[in-house]
Nucleic acid binder design. Sequence first.
DNA 1: TCTGTCAGGTTGTCTGACAATCTGGCAATA
DNA 2: TATTGCCAGATTGTCAGACAACCTGACAGA
Lengths: 226, 226
Amino acid sequence: MAEPPFSTLHLELSSTVDRVADELRRALFDGELESGTPLREVALAESLGVSRPTVREALGLLVAEGLATREPNRGVSVATTEAATVHDICRARWVLEGAGVRCWRQADERLRDAVRTSLVSYTGAVRNAATYQELNERHLAFHISLVGLTGSPRLVAMAESLVRELKLALAQVDRIRRNAHDQADTHTQLVMLLERGDVDGASAFLQKHLDDAETSILSALGLVTP
Amino acid sequence: MAEPPFSTLHLELSSTVDRVADELRRALFDGELESGTPLREVALAESLGVSRPTVREALGLLVAEGLATREPNRGVSVATTEAATVHDICRARWVLEGAGVRCWRQADERLRDAVRTSLVSYTGAVRNAATYQELNERHLAFHISLVGLTGSPRLVAMAESLVRELKLALAQVDRIRRNAHDQADTHTQLVMLLERGDVDGASAFLQKHLDDAETSILSALGLVTP
DNA sequence: TCTGTCAGGTTGTCTGACAATCTGGCAATA
DNA sequence: TATTGCCAGATTGTCAGACAACCTGACAGA
């Protein structure tokens, strides 16, 4: 067992561009920027005390993540969420998370454990009446851990991208309307089905849960169209 | 039926950055750049007759697409493909394409037609003994059309991203070794199963096909590890 | 009402520059 | 010999300033 000497050490080095992008993401997820707001390069550069190329590069990152959209010669602005977008995201989530659930049996034990711990992390936050932010974060982390059952980094990355888009959309609704109603029971039930080995039952359960999530998100956003 | 007057017109306006990125992609997919080759900013800028910031931005696009990797203070270089990467991509493809196949019955008729036409486009190219490039392109387009059955733009985009990575990996092997062996029959068989309504059969068939693809890609890349 | 024109603001791109960092080699040291 | 310290060249990360192209809105003229 020749363990490499310093294999546990890891240095996080962050560029200015990354820090700018982080700050912009934070502002977006905190709902400080309304959907559709143009993100002017010079204004941001002055506010953040960096140069325009740096801001420009950070904006490029956000656009690549789908959090903002760039129109030629018109700059980038905060992405707006249509009803069709929400539907698409939820459908895609169903494909990814459903694939994870179907992998439950053949999945590595550590991956199953990751699901369990993310569940208790969520239910614990519910019991402690954590902030909406915290609750939402852990709720979504649980769903990501389901995709993790596939053992595929790429599928997980895709799921995270989808969830980021949802977080941005939900950041648009003001704090009163987004009542993160207690879904701890629902998720515990899902895991119980899995533990029992009832993959098909869990799969159907998840599908219904995601369906409900779609309608609840749509109504929260006021996008219910006849 | 008040058809908007000029709704069919569409003007494609391309920025310099896009053109640079396109040229780089072309070079990558043509195998002109070996895996791991550093993409120096100044050298590219001089070769292409554009400025360094423009090249830099184009490189950012490639990195976002997974075709290149950026290491801090060390620049970006052509992405290298590990065996684990190929495995991951094929697993993710199975999730996405399998989801498409399962949607066959409830899919829109136009989406099913898209699958049929992409199949004949592929088999036609096989009959005409088209170039490897052309064959590969149509083959992958067929698989993308399977994901299209889900009707989800995001899932299709993910599938395209996966396929781009595969194309880059295959571009590394020289032209003699990559013999695109005739798979027209296999794909026709898959569609026949679907037309017959045998979704489960098609699904299992696809899984086997993707499994075979993984081993054949790995051996083509010389990445077969004991 | 429609068109032509103009001013202001913003993006797309270029040039030039500088500090921080990486690489490799070479000397000094234990 | 193996390790360390240090230096020169190369490359990236970031900045400042500039200019053309473009979009927007308003305003005058037909």
